[in-house]
């Protein structure tokens, strides 16, 4: 039993290939197998990984990969939980859920394929695209400013925020391992060239615009992390772990599941303790 499922159907050269290798390798190196993980896939080219990566998985609705996994995690909080989705699903359609999952410090790793377009629906603009980006749905360029996922995650309460590049799988594996090892909400925003629809944010583009965070960079400083997180607005993309702090996770604050997972608890049967309150 391996993580390998169907052969991927992504376009040749698509950044999704590298991301999948990154996730799979990180999971394997960390000692997981398909039976020991809960995966939640959004809808999109990215979410199509559901058929390419084995696991106990939810292939959810567009935008809903996070809240669905939040529910599953409350029931089996000891199981490793991972979300895979696109920038459209996670920051657009499901943006509200993203913010609130950060707020709650829900214990899960959210991996976002940030390609600045909607791949699966053939190239319309995504909320991370730069102002002025021209696409099928925005022929004269997008009016809105881009979302800044890294900054948004940090100010919303995420406790681990990183950025990787689909063209650098070796670094991606390291980032993902750290993210999966983190207790609490971890975001890995992956810069992912969509070779078919995005002719601006290409591999060549990222080769010149990305840089690795210095080894001496201290990810525990929230203010510095925020400053770094703002750089993509100037088309400078830091790669690595921007922010990493310890904090109580969401499930750790529920006495009901302090010892056991929710499914392991015994059935409640002291009914008269309840009915007497209504007498």
């Amino acid at each position: 039993m391996t993580f390998d499922a169907y052969a991927p159907t992504w376009c040749p050269g698509c950044g999704d290939w590298g991301i999948r290798i990154g996730i799979k390798t990180a999971l394997e190196q960390a000692g997981y197998n398909p039976s020991s993980v809960l995966l939640s896939f959004d809808i999109g080219c990215s979410g199509n990984m559901n058929d390419f990566l084995n696991g106990y998985a939810l292939h959810t609705l567009h935008g809903r990969a996070i809240p669905t996994l939040v529910g599953a995690k409350m029931v089996q909080h000891k199981t490793k939980a991972i979300v895979v989705g696109g920038d459209g699903g996670i920051y657009g359609e499901g943006g509200n859920h993203f913010v609130h999952a950060c707020r709650g410090n829900h214990d899960m790793t959210v991996i976002v394929h940030d390609n600045m377009v909607y791949g699966l629906t053939t190239g319309q603009v995504a909320p991370t695209a730069k102002k002025g980006y021209k696409s099928k749905s925005t022929p004269r360029g997008i009016i809105e400013n881009p979302i800044n996922p890294l900054a948004l995650a940090i100010i919303s309460g995420a406790t681990f925020v990183a950025q990787g590049f689909a063209g650098d799988v070796r670094q991606l594996v390291e980032i993902m391992k750290q993210a999966m090892n983190h207790k609490g909400f971890s975001l890995v925003n992956v810069l992912q060239p969509c070779v078919t629809f995005n002719k601006v944010n290409t591999y060549a583009y990222y080769m010149t615009k990305t840089y690795k965070l210095d080894v001496k960079y201290d990810p525990s400083d929230r203010k510095k992390a925020l400053t770094k997180a703002m750089e993509p607005f100037e088309e400078k993309f830091p790669l690595g772990v921007l922010y990493n702090v310890k904090a109580q996770t969401y499930h750790e604050q529920w006495p009901q599941i302090e010892k056991n997972m929710l499914i392991e608890n015994k059935r409640f049967a002291s009914f008269s303790d309840i009915t007497k309150k209504f007498v």
Partner: peptide, 21 residues
């Protein structure tokens, strides 16, 4: 476990996740 999530969409999807688990 009784939760008050951010909206009804989260409410129902989280319940589906819980039932799946």
């Amino acid at each position: 476990v009784v939760r008050h999530p951010e909206d009804e969409i989260s409410v129902v999807n989280s319940a589906i996740g819980a039932a799946f688990a």
